[in-house]
Design a binder for these strands. Structure first.
Lengths: 229, 229
DNA sequence: CTAAAAATATGATATTTATCAGTAATTCGT
DNA sequence: ACGAATTACTGATAAATATCATATTTTTAG
């Protein structure tokens, strides 16, 4: 038997915890679990979404393509996050693409269970609202960072962000390994520039690398870079 | 007698239209109307907000100060928009400052009327959710624009945005007049750079100016600049 | 295991943008 | 209306960043 949402721990991290037993039962009855391999996409910018994706495992990058062909990564979503919410709420096509950064396990929840609950259960709606409000605040911060900080500052910030949000492995490397291109798309810069700054940070002893893996060596100095020293 | 929310047209443009008669009555009984002069602030980054502001007239810039002392304008809010919603919902201090760009008339609505309704009226909550979701989508667009477009492209885009959202006056100038500094803070660039590009656009016949007023002369060519030609 | 492909790295250079310095124009308070 | 203060503008220069070219390393497919 497939696992039931009622027993799913992941739910505690997102707005689904505000659903009633019956609502949750309906979600569980209609949901499907999917395995998404690294590099595959959950949905593409412009798609009409018929539901939301609840992340059980793995990480997805949410990005938007610009006219010049470069992707800007707007958010990295991991365990517990619900993707596609915004699009389902506004009943608009999605403005972002979601691509797996590593192998993922997600639950697809058809939109009806969501929209029905949104209309009937104010606790759930409020909970979703709180999450979206939080995302909005973070987006505002990103705007200010990108427009006011140098690439070097944003690179340092990105490493600290990855450390805080995804942790480190046994060998002291960031647990989430991104390609140099993905890093540059998070930071909003050219891939070559990102690589150059990685080299510089390495030379200065702020980080260490092994292949594409990156580890933080001197958190204090990285923070100083973020602050502009 | 002061005007009542029940009769207020502005309400049709925002989430307050989803309130019931009784809820609206309570809002009306507790609200206060304020005049905010150009340059004065509704609230400052870091303030704890005791309510939201419903804009009846005038325009407010929502901005965030960065470490280097420059403001980044994240949004321009005018008639019908409700400011401070996000902060009240998350019960956090506000992450933005709201300053009047011209003389404003706003209604201050104490947060209790809002939070009570959020917990009881799912229609209202859903309506607020839709608005915040829309803001989030716009914020994502801003992120991509800032990181992927040149200053020149963003300047052209800003003028078209001002035209679309605030219209033109009888003489063909943008109805919302911003200082050069404000323009540079919307676009996310140095004031001198913004001025330089204004001069260039003027020389090329894309815009015309009179004092600080700016008018669009060749919309098509401006659009071409946005697209990168 | 190996050749091909992809990703990473680095140098040289061009372009974009910011900063500094100074002048002209406009706005504001009395 | 007048001087002071702010805002707008322009030039010279410096700094940041992107782009192009190319080499090296790593990964992938067969």
């Amino acid at each position: 038997m497939e696992s039931r949402c009622e027993n799913c721990i992941i739910r505690q991290f997102n707005s689904l915890r505000a659903m009633s037993k019956e609502e949750l039962k309906q979600v569980s009855d209609t949901k499907t679990t999917k395995i998404i391999k690294k590099g595959e996409s959950l949905f593409e910018e412009g798609d009409k979404l018929n539901g939301v994706y609840c992340v059980r495992n793995g990480v997805s990058k949410l990005s938007k393509l610009s006219a010049n062909g470069k992707d800007q990564i707007v958010k990295l979503a991991s365990k517990g996050e619900v993707l596609g919410q915004r699009s389902v709420i506004s009943q608009e096509i999605t403005n972002l693409s979601a691509v797996a950064v590593n192998d993922m396990e997600v639950c697809f929840i058809p939109k009806d269970s969501i929209t029905n609950t949104l209309q009937k259960n104010p606790n759930f709606t409020l909970e979703v609202l709180r999450h979206i409000a939080h995302d909005l605040k973070e987006a505002d911060d990103v705007i200010v960072n990108i427009s006011q900080k140098t690439v070097k500052q944003r690179m340092a910030e990105a490493f600290l962000y990855l450390q805080n949000n995804f942790g480190e492995d046994a060998d002291g490397f960031l647990a989430l390994t991104l390609s140099r291109e993905d890093i540059s798309n998070v930071v909003g810069t050219a891939t070559e520039s990102a690589i150059r700054i990685i080299s510089e940070f390495k030379k200065k002893g702020l980080i260490h690398t092994s292949g594409k893996k990156i580890g933080i060596k001197d958190e204090r100095k990285l923070l100083e870079v973020v602050e502009g020293f």
